[in-house]
Structures are given as C-alpha cells and as structure tokens.
Write a protein that binds this DNA or RNA. Structure first.
Lengths: 202, 202
DNA sequence: TAGATTGTTAATCGATTAACAATC
DNA sequence: TAGATTGTTAATCGATTAACAATC
C-alpha cells in the first residue's frame, strides 16, 4: 500500500508525463521527472517502484508505459463522478472551476437545502435539494463527495453522506469531521492554509 | 519556532475559541478543544505550550486570554493585504470566495496580462495589468500573494513576485516552484488533492 | 570496461503517542 | 486528601535522506 504522500506525488508525475508525451519525449530519468515536480530523484524512484514500474539504468523510464502504469494505479479516476454538497461561496467557486475548466473530473450534481438555489443550473451544474441526493448516489454509483456546507452542518452532513454510501470526502469546511475509519477525508481548509502563509510571510 | 503543523492547528483552535467566546464559555480543557478540532488532548496541550500559554489543572485554559495569545502569535494576520495573480477559473473562484465571504483576509487587487480581464472589476475586486503589480506591492506593503496562473507561467511569475518583495505564496498551480529558501510557499493543488480522494474512494 | 542510473538497505530526522510526575 | 488535568520526558512510528551494490 502506497502512502498518502506517494499517491499525491504520483498524481503530479502523471501530469508532467502527459506533457512529456505531448512533447514527444519517450524516455525520462528520475532526476528529470524530479526536477519537473520538485521532488528528489531518489524519491521519484521509490514512488515509481511502489507502483511496480521498473526503469532501466541506460534509458531511465519509458514515458508512455509509465503513464499507463500510473493511470492503472488510479484506475477509475478518469470516469469519476462526484457530487458537491453545499452551494455557498466556496461551492460555487468550485463549480465554476471544474465545469469551465478542462478537468477530467466531473461534478455531476450539486445539492443544497436553500430553495433559492435548487432546481436550477448554477455555474453549469444542476442543483437539487439535498433530499434527492440518495437517488443520485445510487444511480450514478457516486463514491466521492465535495463537502462545502456551513461549519455547523459539516458533521451531520458528512454522516449523511456516509449513510448513503460515500467513501471519500473532500472537506472544504474548517471542521474535522469524525467518521468511520473506512471513509477517507481530505481536509482542504483554504482559510487555514492562507493564515499559515500569512504567518510565514511576516 | 513552531512547526508548520502546529501553526495550522493554532489557526483551527482560534476559530473554535471564537465560537466559545460567542457562547460565553470562559474556560476550556484540552480535551474539549481537541474534540472540536479533531486533535488529541495531548497534542492541543503541546501546541498551546509552544506559543507560551499555560493553563492550570483545575480550570484548564482561559478562553479569552488564550485567544488573545493566539491572535498575538499570528499578529499582523488580521490586517493582511494580499494580491491575486492570474484571473482564470480558479482565480475568479477565489475572488468570489474571499470578497463575498466575511473573511478577515482581503484580496486588495488582482493581476493578469489578458487585456479582456484588466482595468475592470471582477467578482468585487479590481483587476490590473501585471506590470502595475510593483506599485501595489510597494504602496500597500504586500507580503503575500496567491498564485493562480497557468502552469507554464508558474515558475517565472513566482520569481517575479520574489523580486518585487513577496515573502509568502499560496500556490494553486500544479508546479512546485523553486525559489529562495526565505520565501514560504504553500502548495494548494486542488486537482491533485481531489485525485487523492478519488483514489481512496475506490 | 567506464559511466550513469537503477533498486535497495541503513541512518537520520521529525512528529506523534504513551507514560508520568507536578499541580490545582 | 482525592481526582482530574497539566507540563514534560521517553518510546514509537513513519517518512526522508544517504549510501551503495547491481545493472544496462
């Protein structure tokens, strides 16, 4: 099992490998890939080893094969359908980012309880009442949700998502929700991170 | 010197302490604050120790004094003026998040090179050509910037920001920019983090 | 072979957890 | 005093770095 940091770096490598393919570069050394992604060459080698891809000392790594290998590692990522819960400032911001962008990740629906926000299209995404979430999750086999509700509803909404079968949550609220061990939660508290930068900018 | 993780957690504690103040709760134990912020009681104690605040075994920590102490730790954070560089999808998303929200953090200006985007107001924030950045940074003593330009411009723009005196960068691009040691960079690659969640949701 | 890069193991580093004496 | 919480030290854990033999 790869560590969280390795998974994160593999996602980075993949992006740069795609660029290398477009530049018709067919092989790459660990230190080259490392330089692109800001990681030491040894770290790159260890990460690639952990997904079972092996290079060779004379040519390094074959870009296309390695890319396929990482794609395989992430498997269903490409066709992933995710939902957004909470259409506030941050929710709308994410919608415009993911619907307007050329990202491979699709937010298939957004949910809220506010009547003025539901049953219409917001930033290119259909918005529904949170009661309809269950149907969507079942029908589209959604496993991942973006949580962007007000802080006070974070815990209860997260618990609801778990009951409906969600396995991974990207949590944009400041609350560290407590859930079963088998649910993966990635905390993305933008304000907190920004305060960190402000602290170190002094 | 506190570790990065301690700084991050202090930012969290502060938010919950503000809530406690509004609830007129005047003292708090480490395990209570820990439960709110999803941190062990021992960790909370160690973090608070590291900012020099000391509680007592019978009443725990005084909420107001502790809050003042953490505010002091973050010092100039409150009145912080920051700028945004790059008014693409993510840039606009951040603008709407920070200008519409009741955040204490102000994005005082946004910069781009695209003529269709500059010299007008976007999501409540004035947008200027990147050439005018120097004046703004000097005049408003800006030390922190949000970097949200296309990946290929990430490194060069980051270097420009350093030359103009920026000390901390919140980096929303997928590129790990290489800068002088004394510049703090916080990487916030949303797509990468989302792919991580997708991976663990399988 | 010589040179550079690879996979792999040992050493280092830092942060978290566990344990406990000191304190109100 | 008894009980709970505090500050503090030692043990644990995991990831990174350094070192090196194996390989093309």
């Amino acid at each position: 099992m790869s560590s969280q940091k390795t998974v994160a770096r593999l996602s980075l490598y993949r992006r740069f490998l795609k660029i290398l393919v477009s530049e018709e570069k067919y092989s790459v050394f660990s230190h080259e890939l490392g330089k692109l992604s800001g990681v030491t060459a040894a770290q790159v080698r260890r990460d690639l080893m952990s997904v079972g891809y092996t290079g060779n000392p004379s040519h390094g790594y074959k870009v296309i094969d390695l890319l396929n290998c990482i794609d395989e590692f992430f498997k269903s990522t490409e066709s992933a359908n995710i939902i957004l819960v909470g259409i506030g400032n941050i929710g709308r911001a994410l919608l415009s980012y993911f619907t307007q962008g050329k990202s491979s990740i699709n937010i298939i629906a957004a949910f809220d309880t506010d009547k003025t926000k539901i049953n219409r299209v917001i930033n290119g995404c259909h918005a529904y009442h949170i009661n309809e979430m269950s149907n969507f999750i079942n029908e589209y086999k959604v496993k991942t949700a973006v949580l962007a509700v007000p802080a006070i509803y974070a815990q209860s909404t997260a618990e609801l998502l778990c009951e409906l079968g969600i396995k991974g949550i990207m949590n944009f609220t400041p609350v560290r929700v407590k859930l079963n061990e088998d649910i993966y939660v990635e905390d993305m508290d933008i304000t907190m991170h920004l305060e960190k930068v402000l602290y170190y900018s002094k």
